[in-house]
Design a protein around this nucleic acid. Structure first.
Lengths: 188, 188
DNA sequence: GAAATGATTTACCATTTGGTAAAAAGTCAA
DNA sequence: TTGACTTTTTACCAAATGGTAAATCATTTC
């Protein structure tokens, strides 16, 4: 079964006809490593779903340093949803951390589905809420030291450690990459 | 006009009859300082809206320290929404930081409104999304030093600084209260 | 394989923050 | 006002982290 449909069914029921309608609106998008899905300063036009690969949200702070705000692994929505919905410019980049395969919906189609499929609005909102919830809860906890944050990162995202560069994990955890390297050494 | 209705109208239109229906379901809840609105380990049964006062979300980490995760000032929803919706136990406490006046809805009424008012579901979801969005974006940024985090806290919540205890701000910012006291001194 | 490039580790020292303890300031009730 | 209590500030030293620089390791390209 289509991985996005499978994901949707966690949040509510869909019959065969509805599934076919959803499938008719989706498109596949292949992103090479480092390509952007959406960019800071631009209005996001699509909702994405990660089928394969890792996406990353990042921005530049006022010192020009690139900060990773989140990692988005397989089977998750990837979109700046509030900006998508309100037609406002994003404040961050969504970038392919590895080569990625996405399923995408254009804004028009995404909204049309709510009108044509009874109950889709409900499923859709639960998906979006789950996506936001994970972001606010699974992020690094500021009140812990860097070693603890790194250990928790590895617990939460065990499959990521070897697939993303140290510097990205470091900025995500709020330490320099030198410090993170030292922390790794101490753990071994 | 009722402050919750006023807030709702930011997200969509409601006619007089619909407003009266919503108003008929709401109740006022007065919380004294330090009283809980919902507790870790318990299933949240109500959605709240802060009319007056400051609410606070907090939890206890594995060393038994109380950590403030967010402050919720006036004109905001206060609820562990995902747990509320999925009937699961919260992982944190929602507590009155000052004496508070809330408007609350029981779960049954909150859900019933979606069925009786066309478009309420849409307004409701936008409110919840905004609430989650603020939480994930207005929190302290881990990749900045404690002084910067404190300065940004004061920018984001200028009205809070003198209304909440230092220790709560400190745990929110991820520093000890001694460090925060030192930071305050250096800023003056 | 060699060179070039990028990523990670190490080293050094300065700075920030934590932990413990105590002093000072503020709050409240009798 | 006093005394009990809580909150905030200060001090001291230890530990963690940052900044700069260089060395090592890994990957790509020719």
């Amino acid at each position: 079964m289509n991985p996005f449909i499978e994901y949707s069914l966690q949040f509510g029921l869909l019959n065969k006809q509805q599934i076919e309608l959803i499938e008719s609106k989706m498109a596949e998008l292949i992103l090479q490593k480092d390509q952007y899905f959406s960019q800071a300063g631009k209005i996001p036009l699509q909702v994405g779903f990660v089928v394969e690969g890792i996406m990353r949200g990042c921005y530049y702070n006022n010192r020009g340093e690139e900060i990773t705000r989140c990692f988005i692994p397989e089977n998750n929505l990837v979109v700046d949803y509030v900006n998508f919905e309100t037609n406002t410019a994003s404040s961050e980049y969504l970038q392919a951390e590895t080569n990625c395969e996405l399923i995408v919906f254009l804004k028009k189609d995404w909204e049309e589905l709510s009108q044509t499929i009874v109950g889709w609005d409900n499923i859709k909102n639960k998906m979006v809420q789950k996506c936001m919830y994970l972001k606010s809860r699974k992020g690094p906890v500021i009140s812990q030291d860097a070693t603890t944050r790194y250990l928790e990162f590895m617990e939460n995202y065990p499959t990521l450690v070897n697939r993303v560069p140290l510097a990205h994990i470091a900025s995500y955890l709020g330490v320099t990459q030198q410090s993170l390297s030292r922390i790794r050494k101490n753990i071994r």
